[in-house]
Design a protein around this nucleic acid. Structure first.
Lengths: 346, 346
DNA sequence: CTGTTAGCGCATTCAC
DNA sequence: GTGAATGCGCTAACAG
């Protein structure tokens, strides 16, 4: 046993109770169910809590109640406006609850994800939020064993684990290709990363291929450069390769706005005008897309709203579970929208 | 009491012990101190763990051992390369330990920070990492009461709470001004946000003022626009205001690379050449700084290394505490470096 | 090297 | 509206 209060804050619930002249149970009630306690007692207890600077120990509470108060949330990267916005959306939606996000990032590795899931399960999260539909077998097994609701987001996996909030990156990218075709572009190319670690990027590439084929356009103009998520510099590099290999390429779709920016900037360096020499589009509608010159055509994704939906499902699932039910698997598709700007001609 | 395994994974340590034909304590040892258990027993126990897909409950472990395994880390925003890199640095440094980051973000509000701290203290973190030196009185009180080591990062507060890892944003910005002066600029201006929520931004502005005064340059050319962290668009807006108000301004220092990018792009839209008409510099050396045309002069900050230092101190502080000591307050200053590029003339 | 005992701090359950 | 008893799952301490 540890020494009393070793590393802890100040006092225990029992000490608060002593000071207030009530039982520990009453303190507990004041904290989590104040309305069942008489006003007078409530005030006494609150005073004692104040005076002792009492901070409840959630580990103890969790152990006793079987509710950790944690929501595990695993994203590929924190340094990405899209995921950061989604996390904000989730947080905001959960802000009026006692639930706390346990955040982790995988660096786009399913192997890291497996370790993260294992680590987080030790905290007994009440729900688990994952990005995408690509997981190791072991991850899937772990997730099935634990009864917590699982939400996959940012994708629409064909075989969902349970709940899904996302959109088809393939369709979204396909729509972009269709719009470019409508603008008169006939020889589009695609720039993305070299591996399939970023499954959303891979889906966009697939969407590009499907759409170009359907439109009878060349579907093979694909440059893969760099480990996803690819950088501005790699976008620049890939664009040059693209135009060297297929000089008559008239529109380039980049896997993200950042690589699109890199590509556009490289054109400016070389004196190739965008969109006259070549049109360039991105994906994600990051801040830079609207603010660059030329502004960047892209696909807007409602990252924040996606997070809000996820948060709402988390709350519903937990509410159901509290009533002894299980929320039926939800499948929410979120908004996206092609936004044409100066980097492609209309 | 909760129903057995309600919401939990599968089995308890006792069940693993039963299956392996040992006591629960031995299972515990295999998990956290394997070398003290005989090889034969170890194998038996590991087998049972495998077969039952046992996942230990850290809440119980924490309660019993008095060690939560959590490190609280509070940053202003997740959507900021600098902080994201710092978090990566911390994570990486802690990756060979059993410590887990409990991440929170304040949206640049000391009030949110106070709530976050209170929430996180309920998890009994073994160390607490804060960004900057600006906190409410109540936050400071809470932090003093809990015995966990506190680390302030990304700043060099005059009155540190305990440990500090950072650099002087004021000095860094001042150095930038000096370098611009060396390049021949005599009428510099500063663009930043309207409030002091982002204390690092405020410090940079102060550094600008101090340096310009010391050099005998005008120190009053300051445009404040937008709530920090200011956007690209606000950078654009502020630049126009700057040149309208003080047309002979020859160099503009922006509080971050993003606002600098906005400003530069606005110049391009208006046909004002950078750096000929006006030089523009940023802060942070984000990806965009090196990749823009013109590339952006800025101050490089070793965000990742800063995080690594923080992680190292966390480990040291916990190690000391385990030996019954207390690590003497550390004060680590991290690297920064003025990087002159195309957006300022040399 | 292994087992036994006890208790971490709280919340559930049931009395009153 | 309040209190007492009990145990959540694990680990420290000690005994063997």
């Amino acid at each position: 046993m540890k020494k009393k209060n070793d590393g802890a804050i100040g006092s225990t619930m029992l000490e608060v109770a002593g000071r207030a002249g009530v039982s520990a149970m009453t303190v507990s009630r004041v904290l989590r169910n104040p309305q069942v306690v008489s006003a007078a007692t409530r005030i006494k207890v609150r005073k004692a809590i104040e005076e002792l600077d009492y901070v409840p120990d959630q580990a103890a509470g969790a152990l006793s109640s079987g509710r950790s108060g944690f929501i595990a949330c695993i994203v590929p990267s924190l340094d990405n406006s899209n995921f950061a916005e989604t996390v904000r959306g989730i947080s905001e939606e959960l802000s009026n609850t006692a639930l706390q996000l346990l955040l982790g990032y995988t660096n786009y590795s399913v192997h890291s994800e497996e370790n993260l899931v294992r680590t987080m399960l030790q905290r007994r999260p009440e729900a688990i939020i994952l990005t995408g539909g690509d997981h190791t077998d072991r991850t899937r097994r772990l997730l099935e064993l634990c009864e917590a609701p699982v939400i996959q987001m940012w994708d629409t996996p064909a075989k969902p684990l349970e709940h899904v909030v996302g959109f088809s990156n393939a369709d979204a990218c396909g729509d972009l290709v269709v719009r470019l075709h409508e603008c008169g572009y006939r020889n589009p190319g695609f720039i993305g990363g070299t591996t399939n670690r970023d499954t959303r990027g891979t889906d966009r590439r697939e969407g590009f291929i499907t759409a170009t084929k359907a439109l009878g356009l060349p579907a093979d103009r694909i440059i893969s450069s760099g480990i996803p998520p690819i950088s501005m510099q790699e976008g620049a590099h890939a664009l040059v390769q693209m135009l060297e290999r297929w000089p008559d390429t008239d529109a380039v779709v980049c896997v993200s706005d950042l690589s699109a920016f890199g590509a556009i900037t490289e054109c400016r360096r070389r004196g190739w005008s965008v969109p006259e020499r070549v049109a360039i589009a991105g994906f994600g509608d990051f801040e830079i897309a609207a603010n660059n010159k030329p502004s960047i055509s892209t696909v807007y994704v409602n990252s924040f709203g996606l997070g809000e939906s996820v948060g709402r499902i988390v709350k519903q699932a937990i509410a159901s579970s509290n009533q002894g039910n299980k929320l039926a698997p939800q499948f929410v598709t979120t908004e996206y929208r092609v936004v044409l700007r100066e980097s492609t001609a209309s």
